[in-house]
Design a protein around this nucleic acid. Structure first.
Lengths: 200, 200
DNA sequence: GGCAGAAACATACATCCTGCATCTGTTTTT
DNA sequence: AAAAACAGATGCAGGATGTATGTTTCTGCC
């Protein structure tokens, strides 16, 4: 292992370059959107060349997908962490929803995950990323809550995406400057309404 | 006004050309998405030239906006029609939600309005189209229902977009082949939960 | 230690798309 | 009937994407 500044292993070079490209891409995609961000501008901002980009990613979309996957992973982890700290099935739901809203407050996340991703990646590809993470967790949480009698029996396959969409819009509202407290209140009211008892 | 076959007034020519371009654009945007639809391919499909396109629309986005506005208008009309037939504030809400789901079942509508439009038009422009129509109606409906004591008092400014998103996802699920009955059940349950009584 | 091969990165090119400026022909107006 | 206004067609400039080809940097082996 040389300590000389100029020498780096291939693994290091790859990781550094990939991280650099993904970080720069995230910033530009958030600021200008996917379509309006050209690869020449992107590599210039990153201080590298287009050759490096196309060496590490099949095309512009693959780079975007890498950005989105990293974002989705971060959100999923935040939710699972909150999930672990809850007791009852209903509490897990409420805590998960809360954690989702908090995680999505990270600047740019709503634009990447909720605006650009659906249009750039197909619905299919987007599902592969989002669905195997957040949505699956939510589905399990709902099933558990219904099983436990905490929630009205409703078709989870339909309910989960719909609730998920509600959470997403709440996150967008918060990103757009709405009262965080109001957003959380409404989301909790929505879930509470499904208990059939109507209390919070 | 000549009746000779080859002779058409300018107004007729304009309307025919615009309609033709919008109809063709809708089909292609639905089938391949906005970004993957090139203007050369579009005008070829329409049997006209790019000159005609850029004569009637400032740019590709303007054509897309025309398509989206037409879709949004159709949805808004369907909702208002259903609204007029309802009695109580709560009934208007439920009828409006139902009408929304039915209207959004029109093939391609979810992709245009919910996937492509947010990414292609800014959130700002999209709001101008969607918000001044569907969302405003929903907001008024919610305010009326809360005023009448039919719904729990919640911040409408936040609740309306969130409910709207839930409806939208329900529409997408239906477009993707989910049980229409299940979708309607869930949507109604969501609204019912907000009454604070929990019944349908 | 030095060299062959692979991998990381850079450069150059072919293709395509967008938007505009220009040009032709038709309709409307006076 | 002539001029003005307008619909529509053609050609061009700028720029973007993705690939093919070169060059440098590392890695495994002798």
């Amino acid at each position: 292992m040389q300590v000389k500044s100029g020498r780096r292993s291939n693994a290091e070079r790859t990781r550094a370059m990939r991280d650099r490209l993904v970080a720069t891409a995230r910033a530009l995609f958030v600021a200008q959107g996917y379509a309006e961000t050209s690869t020449p501008a992107l590599v210039t901002a990153a201080g590298v060349t287009r050759g490096a980009l196309y060496h590490h990613f099949a095309d512009k979309r693959a780079l975007f997908r890498a950005v989105v996957e990293a974002e989705a992973e971060a959100v999923a982890q935040a939710i699972e962490a909150a999930d672990d700290r809850a007791e009852s099935a209903l509490d897990r739901l409420l805590a998960g929803a809360d954690a989702y809203l908090t995680a999505m407050a990270e600047p740019g996340r709503t634009r990447l995950l909720l605006v650009e991703a659906p249009a750039v990646l197909g619905e299919a590809e987007r599902r592969c990323i989002e669905d195997t993470r957040g949505d699956a967790t939510l589905r399990e949480g709902l099933e558990a809550a219904i099983e436990a009698g905490a929630l009205r029996p409703l078709p989870v396959a339909v309910l989960a995406p719909i609730l998920s969409a509600a959470f997403e819009r709440a996150a967008e509202s918060m990103a757009a400057g709405a009262e965080p407290a109001a957003c959380r209140t409404v989301v909790r009211a929505l879930i509470a309404g499904l208990t059939g008892r109507g209390d919070t």
